[in-house]
Structures are given as structure tokens and as C-alpha cells.
Design a protein around this nucleic acid. Structure first.
Length: 884
RNA sequence: GGGCGGUUAGCUCAGUGGCUAGAGCGCUUGCUUCACACGCAAGAGGUCACUGGUUCAAGUCCAGUACCGCCCACCA
């Protein structure tokens, strides 16, 4: 005992994460544990980390990604798999250019003041300043990724992969340049893909406007939500079957204000029931109108400048902002008597996902990927199961998107990003697409080549990430060994942006799927369920959470009791709960360490001949190990953690340690099972809470005589042994627990002072030997002394509180405190309840179909239960009779 | 207009056909019990949204309804 109390003072009472996290992270790094051990005979486990924005800050979504990926990685590493987790960062075209431009703006400069080259220098400076912050944040989260393989999308390797892919797709005719309607952001002054546009339903107006007919004093009335685009109209269309307008088709109408004459045409796409049944056609600024224009050979009249102001085609309105122009034109129409009426109308307006500005559909010359041919193999891969999506419901979402996919606009009018590898010959106009910069025109030999000024959509390089990071297009050793990767873990919000494109590009470039499994996690929300955003100010910085609660607590809070694809609400209460669990574990370890004498063997513990509580906890532990391994295999990490938590707190601490204390009071000889269960649990928990488990494990290791590796992170992951499962021990222990709880319950009910001992009689039936062996424990845990273990026939106290349990009865003689009437009523109600139970079990068992169709062990269990209820019924009845 | 998800204790959520449906937080009562007050013990609290179906057995599977949320879509 002196040894124990002495040691206890060595270890602080509360777990302090800050003293341990840095220490162990450095230790792991120094030892090189994060590097994969390559074994050509073993299939590796590989995760490529979703690359965060190079100039960004990690938010809780990244913390969740890091947590789930790290737990998978650590688990596989402990299982002995060659394990690679490859980190990286993304150049994030628009986002990065945006922050650097804002920084310039604070100095009163625009990127145009600097020019392209100097602007890019600024971007690189900015990156060199902020890039390290991301990895530092990641390291504080405990990520065990291979930093030596860290990649940046703008590195030479991935950049070459980008150009190579571009060339290959161009040669195949899958990349083309063409004039199409794209989404234009006037603030970012670049084209966007359809995915980068967020549609919002907004209340607006439908304006009815008259166009004068040419050579006639009649009118045709159109309805539009965007009167300013009148200036770009090149036709009015009606449905060919619409009799109201049959006479007008082929005639001309004059545009209001500017008077330009446009034809009236017939087209199926016009819905006669909408508005007036006549629609103005603006091929330059509307996707449907563009199609109509193509079919009818209509002219494209662009009326906008890149910044959203009106251009010279807008005549008197040139220079006005598009929204100011709308008001101005409406006023003029009213003056001219061409404005008829306005009706409220809800329609959806696209906004730039980066800056929130309303985007303009705009006919513009851009580069596109003809994506449908690439989608087909990506669909097949998921349909035939080469790629599995978790949770499964997203399979349908994925397939639906790919089946209806439209060409992908990949050119961006930005400076920061992968420059499009296309050169134009100034002399002959030849278009040269090449991986390396050409020195002369392949056609005419001229050296006057100008590279396309645009850059590629950031997601183009992201789509190549799983193979470009491993060395593609070179057939590197890494590519050969680690590709295809194992799991792609990311948020469901980028299923289309990223996951689908990786499948398409991976298959296209390598002929293989990029990963076997897609694991999609949910969004992290605040305690009110709202999306975290800087604007709302409800963003919780992961580092703040770590400072306050510790990394393990943050990881535990983010991943426990959650399920794939479902959003997570993170609150301070949740973090506190996780921190409390870490502290509980810490203190359990403090207790165990204090009782572990130097050289106590904890490995190779066998249940044979051990006391009941030892056999019980070993049985429970092994059940847990089997369950957790099954859950991990099945990607149910949150449930696995919950089970570990419940075992450690509710079984190991609440019962096993409490009973161990009694034994240690009797005799100071060490209890190997105590150390064994803790040590095994630490390894089981390590992937989820890496720091505290390492700290305790190392501390324990010094006391262990067993040979062990230098770190818990390379120790073997525990697997269950079903021969350790001992149903008898569990049954007996349950009875002990029931008896103790029953007595405690009554003590509380009768307000017996906590320190006071009370006398108890326990009638044991089949389990009498077990209860006798546990008499001392029951006494102490229930504070019941003297405790009389008696037979069913033995005399028991007269006026006693009686508790009829399934395998025992407890009598508590509480002099003067028993109300016989109340006691009788209570027993009567228990009898009623018991009767109902019996009836339920009987009717189930009497059903022949149940007996014949239910599995044998279920039938058996129901029989046992019925028997237990019947026994109890008898004893309840007896007891009631005794009371009268 | 299509599709998906949710609806389980006061709150937040687990529960992937089989005990009498669980946890954390909150609440009530009592405890400075020698690992832990970031704790211990006891307790209250449920028509698993609703209707029907499949099954020996449904919170769990199927169909429909209601409400909430999300995604997709060229509704001028």
C-alpha cells in the first residue's frame, strides 16, 4: 500500500493534454512511424488526404476529415498493413487569387497594377507564408500521415499530370474550345462551371412589355424577368401551335428604345401557357435562347462588359451597371407606353459560390470537356461494385448526376492556377497543345507563339489527385504499389465536385478506379444546427477546441456516436463530455498503475482458475474486441467508439476496479487482469484517442515485464478470443450486480445514511456458490453487513423489505420503516407485471411458427426467460403470502 | 418539377430484423467513499411522427400521409 500511495502522487489528478501531445507527436515523427513499410507481398492500405486550400485555415470539417482518416490509418497500421496516408494542399485558384487581391486592395492596388508576372510572385510569397500553418494545424490534430510525401497541386509532378491529361483528352477530341453559354461572375471576372453556381429561389417580377410590329401599328407582348436583356434580343419566339400568333410568325418586331428590328419565329420550347406565350430571345445571355439561336441562325449580341456593366451594344445605357440599367430601361418603357404590367414571380437566380454575386449566363469562347464519354466507365465502376460508396444512399445521387452530366467548362479567366497548355501561332493561327512549351509552330515553324492566357478550373487538377500524387504519368514504384488507393474519405458536399471527377479521370488516365471505397462524412454544424460560417460568426476553430479540451477530446467528440453522411452538431457540452471521458480513463490508469508492481506480467492472461470478476471482465473485454473489429471492418467507427466508452466507464471502472479495490485491501499482491484489460483497451482505443493512450501506455510499459514495442501506435491491434467468452461468469456477475443495485436502491429510497451499514439476507438459488464467493464484495459495494446468505427453506426476517430478483431474493429488515400495506401493494403490482411478461413469453413460445422459424438460440433464450419469470412468480406469491 | 434524408427521453443523437429501446447533456435526491466532483450512488423521464402492409418477430423492411431539412433541374 505505501507503494501505491506514493505512486499516486506522481501522476497528476487531472489529465493535462498539453504536456503530452507535442511530446508524442515529435516522438512518432522522429521514429518515422508515419512512413509506410513497403512489403510487396502485402496489399497496402492507402488514403490520399483531401488537400485543404493552401492559404486557408483548418476548420472543423478538416478536423473531422483528419480524425476519421487518422483512425482508419492507425487502425490499419496496427493491424500490420503497409499503410500510406498522403497529405497535400490545393492551390485553390479563385479562393487564393481572391485573398491575395484583397490584400492588394488594402494597399490600394489591383492585380492589373502589378501585371500577371508580379502578381503571381505575390501569390507565391503569400503561400510560402501561410502554407506551413496548415500542416502545423494538422499535426496538432495528431494526424499520422507521411509528411515526406506531401504534395502541392502546383508542384511540378501534379502540374505535369495536368498538362498530360489535357493533351490526351484534346487528342481524343474530348477537350474542345467553343462558344457556349457559361456562367460568368462579374466580380471574379471569370467563367464558372455549373457546379460553382448556387441557385437561390428569389421573389422577383415578371414584366409584360410590348414590342411594336414592323410596318404595322400592332404589338406583340412578351413577358420577361430581365428587361435589361432586351438590348441583346435577336428574335421573339412563339409556339408553332399557338393560334394567337400564327399570323405573326415571319414578321418583324422593333425592339423598344433602340428600335432594332428582330424576327418573330416559331419554336417548340415556348410554353403557350406561360406569360403571353411570346418570349424574347437573347441568345447571348440565356442558355435556352442560345439553343434557339443556334437552330435559327440568330445573331449573338453581347450587351455586357466583363464587370457586369453594359457595353456599347446597350446604346444609351452603355456604362450603366446591369441592375441600374434594368431600372432605367423600365422607366423609359413606361414613358413610351410600352410597359404593360408587372406580376410577382419567384424564380431561381444563380450566385457565384465563392463571392455570392449573381452570375450572368454569357455566350463566351471557353474550353470544355466533353464529359459524357468519361462518365460511362465511372457509372459502371460504381454499378458493378468496384467502387463502393458509404453511406450507400449516395450511390443514387452519384449515378443520377453522372447520367445527366453536361459538358464541363474548364477555363478560368484568372491568373493563379495551371495555365492552359495551348499555344496559338501568331503567323498561321495554328493551335498547338503540348505538355512542354513548344519553341516553334508545328505548322509554319514560326516562333511567334502565344500561350492561352486562361488557367484551368482548380477541380481539374483535383480530379487527378489520387494518381498524380503517386507520380503519374510516370510509372513510379509508388504508383505501382499504392494505386489504386483504398478509401477516399471526404464530405458529401463535394461528391460531384471532386469524387465523381476523380473516378472519371482516374479511370481515363490509369484504366483503374482511384479507390475502392468512398466514405462520406457529414457537415459539422454549431449547437443550433446551423452551418458554421465566418459571416455568422459561429465558427469554432479546431485549435481553440484543442487548447480548451485537448486533441483527443476533440477527436472523440467529432467521431463518437455519429454515422456516415449525417451532419454533426458540435457543442461545448459535447466536447466537455469527451474531455471527461479522457479524464476518466486517465484516472483509471492512475489507479491501475499504482497497483502494478514492477514486472507484473499482463500478457498471456488466461481465465482458467481466476475469480469470478476476472473471468467476467475478460469475457466482456473479448466480446468488445470482437464487436469493435467487426464494426471497424464495416466502417461503423462512431458505434465502435461508443462501445469502447461504455465498456471502460460502465464495466471496467464502475464494477471491475471497484471490486479490485476490495481484493487489494485483502492482499497487496498485484492483479494481472487489471493491467491486462487496461493495456488491451488502450490499444483498442488508440486510433481514436492517440495521445492519451500513448501517454498511459508508455507509463504502464515501464512497469510491465512483457516485451513490448516502443510505441502503442506500432503495437498490434487487439482481436477478440471467443474462448474467453464465459456466459456463466457473465450471468453470475449480473446477479451480483443486481443484488448490489437492489440494496443500494432501497437504501436511497429509505434515505439510509451513506455511511451506515444495514443488515441483509440474500436467498440464493442456483447461484448460491457464486454469491458466496462474492459475499465480501456485495457487503462492501452495497454497504450491507451483516450479510446472511441463506437457503430457500431457511428462516428469514419477518418485517423486511423484500426484493424478488430473477435469481435471488433480498430481505432488508428495516425496523419500523416497513409499511406492510404498501409493501403488499408493491408486491401485488410486481406480480401483475410479471404475469404480463409470462403471458407474452407464453404466447410467443406457443406459436408453432415461432418455434419452427425462429433461430434455435432465440427460442432457447425465450424459454429461459419464461422459466425465470415463472420462478419469480412463485417466489413473489410466496412472499405475498408471508406478509399477511 | 425530380431525388434524398430526418422525425426515438426536456435537448443533441446512437440503435445495419431478435432481451423489458440506449448514451451524453439537462433535471431530482443524496454523497469531500483512500483513481477520478472532468467524480460516485440512486431516480424521474418514451404511443420510436401518423396509417396500413411484409415477417414467427418491426424503432429497424415495404407502401402511403404529414411536417422539417438538403441536393439536383435551361420555370422566359
Amino acid at each position: 500500500m505505501p507503494i501505491m500511495s506514493q505512486r499516486m502522487t506522481d501522476i497528476p489528478k487531472a489529465y493535462d493534454p498539453h504536456n503530452v501531445e507535442k511530446k508524442w507527436y515529435e516522438f512518432w515523427m522522429e521514429r518515422g512511424y508515419f512512413r509506410p513499410g513497403i512489403d510487396p507481398d502485402r496489399k497496402p492500405f492507402v488514403i490520399i488526404m483531401p488537400p485543404p486550400n493552401v492559404t486557408g485555415e483548418l476548420h472543423l470539417g478538416h478536423a473531422l476529415t483528419a480524425t476519421i482518416e487518422d483512425l482508419m490509418i492507425r487502425w490499419h497500421r496496427m493491424k500490420g498493413d503497409p499503410t500510406l496516408w498522403l497529405p497535400g494542399v490545393d492551390h485553390a485558384g479563385i479562393a487564393t487569387q481572391f485573398v491575395v487581391e484583397q490584400n492588394l486592395a488594402s494597399q490600394g492596388l489591383s492585380r492589373h497594377d502589378l501585371g500577371r508576372e508580379r502578381f503571381l510572385e505575390r501569390v507565391w510569397e503569400w503561400i510560402s507564408k501561410y502554407r506551413g500553418a496548415i500542416s502545423e494545424q494538422h499535426q496538432r490534430l495528431g494526424v499520422s500521415c507521411d509528411w515526406e510525401r506531401e504534395c502541392f497541386t502546383m508542384d511540378e509532378g501534379p502540374s505535369r499530370a495536368v498538362r498530360t491529361t489535357f493533351l490526351r483528352l484534346y487528342d481524343k477530341g474530348l477537350i474542345y474550345r467553343g462558344e457556349r453559354i457559361i456562367n460568368w461572375c462579374p466580380r471574379c471576372t471569370t467563367a464558372l462551371s455549373d457546379l460553382e453556381v448556387e441557385h437561390q429561389e428569389l421573389p422577383a417580377h415578371l414584366y409584360y412589355i410590348r414590342y411594336r410590329l414592323a410596318g404595322d401599328d400592332g404589338y406583340i407582348t412578351v413577358a420577361t424577368t430581365r428587361p435589361e436583356t432586351i438590348l441583346g434580343d435577336t428574335a421573339v419566339a412563339v409556339n408553332p401551335s399557338d393560334e394567337r400568333y400564327t399570323g405573326l410568325v415571319g414578321k418583324k418586331a422593333a425592339l423598344p428604345v433602340i428600335g432594332r428590328l428582330i424576327p418573330i419565329i416559331a419554336h417548340d420550347a415556348v410554353d403557350p401557357a406561360f406569360g403571353t406565350g411570346a418570349v424574347k430571345i437573347t441568345p447571348s445571355h440565356d442558355p435556352v435562347d442560345f439553343e434557339v439561336g443556334q437552330e435559327h441562325g440568330l445573331e449573338l449580341v453581347n450587351i455586357l462588359n466583363p464587370d457586369g456593366t453594359m457595353n456599347e451594344n446597350a446604346g444609351p445605357y452603355a456604362g450603366l451597371d446591369r441592375f441600374a440599367c434594368r431600372e432605367a430601361i423600365l422607366a423609359d418603357l413606361k414613358n413610351e407606353g410600352l410597359f404593360i404590367e408587372t406580376k410577382p414571380h419567384v424564380h431561381s437566380v444563380g450566385h457565384c459560390c465563392r463571392c455570392g454575386t449573381a452570375v450572368e449566363p454569357w455566350a463566351s469562347k471557353q474550353w470544355f470537356i466533353k464529359i459524357a464519354p468519361l462518365a460511362v466507365p465511372a457509372i459502371d465502376a460504381v454499378v458493378d461494385g468496384r467502387v463502393r460508396i458509404i453511406p450507400e444512399r449516395f450511390t443514387k445521387v452519384y449515378l443520377n448526376w453522372l447520367e445527366n452530366i453536361r459538358d464541363w467548362c474548364i477555363s478560368r479567366q484568372l491568373w493563379w492556377g495551371h495555365r492552359i497548355p495551348v499555344w496559338y501561332c501568331d503567323r498561321c493561327g495554328e493551335i498547338i497543345v503540348a505538355v512542354d512549351e513548344p519553341q516553334a509552330c508545328t505548322q509554319c515553324g514560326s516562333a511567334d507563339l502565344v500561350q492561352d492566357p486562361d488557367v484551368l478550373d482548380t477541380w481539374f487538377s483535383s480530379g487527378l489527385w489520387p494518381h498524380s500524387t503517386l507520380g503519374w504519368p510516370e510509372q513510379t514504384d509508388d504508383l505501382k504499389y499504392f494505386y489504386p488507393t483504398s478509401v477516399m474519405e471526404t464530405g458529401y458536399d463535394i461528391l460531384f465536385f471532386w469524387v465523381a471527377r476523380m473516378v472519371m479521370m482516374g479511370l481515363e488516365n490509369t484504366g483503374q478506379v482511384p479507390f475502392d471505397t468512398v466514405y462520406l462524412h457529414g457537415l459539422v454544424r454549431d449547437e443550433k444546427g446551423e452551418k458554421m460560417s465566418k459571416v455568422k460568426g459561429n465558427v469554432l476553430n479546431p485549435l481553440d477546441a484543442i487548447d480548451q479540451y485537448g486533441t483527443d477530446a476533440l477527436r472523440f467528440a467529432l467521431s463518437t456516436g455519429t454515422s456516415p453522411g449525417n451532419d454533426i452538431r458540435l457543442s461545448s457540452q459535447r466536447l466537455e463530455g469527451a474531455r471527461n471521458f479522457a479524464n476518466k480513463l486517465w484516472n483509471a490508469a492512475r489507479f491501475v498503475a499504482g497497483n502494478m508492481q514492477q514486472g507484473t506480467k499482463t500478457a498471456g492472461v488466461v481465465p482458467d482458475g481466476l475469480p469470478l470478476e476476472d473471468r467476467w471482465i475478460l469475457s466482456r473485454l473479448n466480446r468488445l474486441l470482437i464487436t469493435v473489429n467487426r464494426l471497424m471492418d464495416d466502417f461503423q467507427f462512431g458505434e465502435a467508439e461508443r462501445q469502447i466508452h461504455d465498456f471502460l466507464w460502465g464495466e471496467f471502472c464502475d464494477w471491475y476496479i471497484e471490486m479490485a479495490k476490495l481484493r487489494l485491501n485483502e492482499s497487496p499482491s498485484p492483479i494481472p487482469v487489471l493491467g491486462h484489460v487496461l493495456e488491451t483497451s488502450l490499444r483498442l482505443l488508440h486510433p481514436f484517442m492517440p495521445f492519451i493512450t500513448e501517454e498511459i501506455w508508455q507509463n504502464l510499459r515501464e512497469r510491465l515485464g512483457d516485451p513490448a514495442p516502443d510505441s502503442i501506435m506500432i503495437a498490434p491491434y487487439p482481436i477478440g478470443d471467443d474462448t474467453a467468452i464465459d456466459a456463466d461468469a457473465e450471468r453470475q456477475m449480473n446477479l451480483v450486480i443486481d443484488v448490489v443495485r437492489a440494496i443500494r436502491n432501497e437504501r436511497a429510497e429509505f434515505r439510509v445514511e451513506p455511511s451506515k451499514w444495514i443488515e441483509a439476507f440474500v436467498v440464493a438459488h442456483d447461484s448460491r456458490p457464486a454469491l458466496e464467493a462474492q459475499a465480501a464484495a456485495i457487503q462492501t459495494l452495497a454497504r450491507a453487513r451483516p450479510l446472511h446468505l441463506i437457503g430457500p427453506e431457511d428462516a428469514r426476517p419477518d418485517k423486511a423489505k423484500t426484493l424478488v430478483l430473477t435469481g435471488a431474493e433480498v430481505f432488508l429488515p428495516m425496523a419500523g420503516m416497513i409499511d406492510v400495506e404498501a409493501e403488499r401493494a408493491r408486491l401485488q403490482s410486481e406480480i401483475e407485471q410479471n404475469k404480463a411478461d409470462i403471458a407474452r413469453f407464453e404466447s410467443r413460445l406457443d406459436d408453432e411458427k415461432f418455434a419452427s422459424r425462429a433461430p434455435a438460440h432465440i427460442v432457447e433464450r425465450e424459454r429461459d426467460r419464461l422459466q425465470g419469470c415463472r420462478d419469480r412468480a412463485t417466489r413473489l406469491a410466496q412472499r405475498l403470502a408471508e406478509l399477511s
